[in-house]
Write a protein that binds this DNA or RNA. Sequence first.
RNA 1: GGCCCUAUCGUCUAUCGGUUAGGACGUCAGGUUUUCAUCCUGAAAAGCGGGGUUCGACUCCCCGUAGGGCUACCA
Length: 501
Amino acid sequence: MPALSVRVRLAPSPTGYMHVGTARTALYNYLFAKKEQGTFLVRIEDTDRERLVHDAEERLLKNLLDLHIQPDEGRVSNGKHVSEVGEYGPYIQSERLAIYRKHADDLVTEGQAYPCFCTAERLDALRKEQQVNKQAPKYDKHCLALSSEEVGERLKNKESHVIRLNVDPQAEDIIFDDLIRGEVRFQSKDIDDQVLMKSDGFPTYHLASVVDDHLMAISHVIRGEEWLPSTPKHILLYQAFDWQPPAFAHIPLLLNPGGGKLSKRQGDVAVDDFLRDGYLPEALINFLALLGWNPGAGSTQEIFTMDELVAQFDLAQVHKAGAVFDVKKLDWMNGEYIKKLSLDDLYMRLQQGSFLDKPLIAEAPQDLQGEIYIKKVLAVEQERLTRLDQVGEENPFFFTATLEYPAERLVWKKSSPEESLSELKRVLELAHSLPEGEWEHLESLEQAFLGAAGDDKGVFLWPLRVALTGAERSPSPFQVAWVLGRSNSLARLEQAIKRLS
RNA sequence: GGCCCUAUCGUCUAUCGGUUAGGACGUCAGGUUUUCAUCCUGAAAAGCGGGGUUCGACUCCCCGUAGGGCUACCA
């Protein structure tokens, strides 16, 4: 038997923003494909005409690009527009309607499926009755009993109808080996006569995904756990078509901290939200990868590049239980990634994400912004950031021309106003004496200031720091002076002395 | 209600019958420090319950319990 090439797919529905759970499903598919030197394709499942959101596909594919989970085949975005790659297209289901129609008709011809004319009202009543009788809610095959003459007549009259799969309740159990969960078994009697074609002429997910997965030669279906209960229906469909089903792997759900499927209202769940909040794509990927998977074998590695994930990923190591999405850990991880960035890269990311457009920075005086200045701020802030959107927030004095603060703040707790004033004068004198060039070097600046400080450094350093920042908390005064530069620093010192005199 | 899945610190997890049950985030304490953050050190913190199987169960099986998913002409 020839080794089947690995082909996996992400089959999102363009109904809105991209959920982080979808991103993780995409990631696992991608990692598996790369690991097996297979193909990762994206197919758009736009069969629900009511929930369709017009730019959803575009945004979704853009997010894939943002996260570096680029498809090899199918619908692909280059950031500007969407195109199709591959020979199994079209890769959007609304353009494959004739294919589904034909396959559904074939099943009807073979008696594997049948038209159903039941109204929503009758189906509702049926379900309610079954609920009361503690039975599994399923269709009662009412329309299967219709004579072929009647069916033909009603079809000819264009009566609204759907096509249902004809499931034999007497058939043997449906058993399949889930790559993550092992053997899963369902009884045929519990399986509903699933709707295959809707009355609007569009297929349901069940029909469309099975037909497409087969036609697109998908080898492994890796999808969320919420699909586990409908897998037997899909297997029945493969049997009805006399097709070989793919392997299935159902990955655990992402959960809210309070329990339940991760959802909006408990916080951000859209990939766009996280990117907008200043999470790095590689940090998000790393975090998502570890939510439900780990390299095992006693590994304690937490930080992974995409290449490392590809090399170590294994479906057998994917967890069975759901995983709570804990933003605290994401924050930590994001901070780790920010620390690893070069200053140039960090600046570039900030620019690309428009994080420097915030009023605090954009409205700062000319000499308190600009690339060189911002990079100095970043040199100081980098190790303190957990998200890109926090730039400048903790240290607004970097971007403010005039500082507002009470004079008492200049006095250190172990010192006096008189002492503080004399220390500040000493600082000013020293600052004046430092040549312009010294201000460009953090080390020499630090040496100069520290050298002037006595044994009780706070007496000297506290007033200096407050004079430069106006704040009770800030980075070290040397760093602040270095960022601000000579003239700004001198001006702030003079102002402080005036304030204390 | 029916069907299915799941179960180790608060959270993410290691362990694949024999361990002082390990790591990470978070929390707390201490250290460094002019302040905050970083950083360093340390601490507290877990096998849902009950039966089996076995010389021996966190680990295998069964029954409970709890949580989750599905139960649409949505995916």
